[in-house]
């Protein structure tokens, strides 16, 4: 089984904060990391390889610095890392990102299974997986929470829905996005870390993947960010600290006003 995992380098959002004074992002010491939701895709790929044999290739579209993240992924035991990079890709939204990834997948000769994380924690869109499957003309399964069965030509998966789950039979090749219930990602051991550091990486540019310049980067992206601001929500409520009794009375009054008593 030839498996690809699409991974993304993201800023560590658990540490991105808005300064309450200046209302701007505080980014001091914030590092770029592997998108946490992609770790479940990497882990699943490795487990499938363990069962069925084959190879696991990690593909990322990103700036040259994404190499560090890719090496982190290689340290989990991934066979090959592919960095699609170049200034022309800057400004890619989900449409042109998925287009470029599709061209890379085709350049690499196609895969039986392509796994993505549910979404990246910076943009939080979850668009790239489904869009990639369209660009490749493959079926998709999103929010996969369990692989019930995986064979060279098909998979039976549980897909998480708002009210429960559904069971899908998906012919391969296919694109799947996975959620964190799927598995418990392993921690790399020392030997793997060492291997990851020195494993060869493949670098692909626009020409190698034969991408149409009009479909990539900012030029190929239908969307534009026009404004960024910090979320602000304030209510002119009353806070009771010393006078808790009065506060509880007020809370009861509020219930009454809302018709809840």
């Amino acid at each position: 089984m030839k498996i690809a995992v699409c991974v993304k380098q993201v800023p560590d959002t658990t540490r991105v904060e808005v300064d309450p004074e200046t209302k701007t992002l505080v980014r001091e010491g914030v590092e770029s990391v592997l998108n946490p939701l992609d770790t479940f895709a990497v882990e699943e790929a490795l487990r499938i390889r363990q069962g069925l044999g084959g190879t696991v290739t990690a593909i990322t579209l990103g700036p040259p610095q994404a190499e560090r993240m890719l090496r982190q992924v290689l340290a989990f035991g991934v066979d090959e890392g592919v960095l699609v990079s170049g200034r022309e890709f800057a400004g890619s939204d989900t449409w042109s990102t998925s287009y470029a990834l599709a061209r890379a997948v085709e350049t690499l000769g196609g895969f039986d299974l392509i796994l993505c994380g549910k979404q990246a924690v910076d943009g939080d869109t979850g668009h790239v997986g489904p869009e990639l499957s369209v660009h490749l003309g493959l079926p998709q399964a999103t929010y996969v929470r369990r692989m019930r069965e995986i064979e060279p030509d098909h998979a039976v998966v549980e897909r998480l829905t708002d009210a429960g789950y559904e069971v899908l039979r998906v012919p391969l090749p296919a694109v799947m996005t996975v959620v964190k219930d799927l598995n418990e990602p392993r921690l790399p051991n020392l030997e793997d870390l060492f291997r990851g550091r020195f494993a060869p990486l493949k670098r692909l540019g626009r020409q190698e993947i034969a991408a149409d310049p009009a479909q990539i980067g900012l030029d190929g992206s239908p969307t534009r960010v026009v404004e960024i601001f910090s979320p602000s929500v304030e209510r002119a409520g009353r806070i009771y600290e010393e006078d808790l009794g009065a506060g509880i009375a007020q809370a009861v009054r509020l219930l009454e006003e809302e018709g809840l008593l």
């Binding site: 800023p11 991105v16 992002l25 404004e227 960024i228 601001f229």
Partner: peptide
């Protein structure tokens, strides 16, 4: 960015 910023 995990709800840390709003974007239009």
């Amino acid at each position: 960015f995990g709800g840390n910023i709003m974007a239009t």
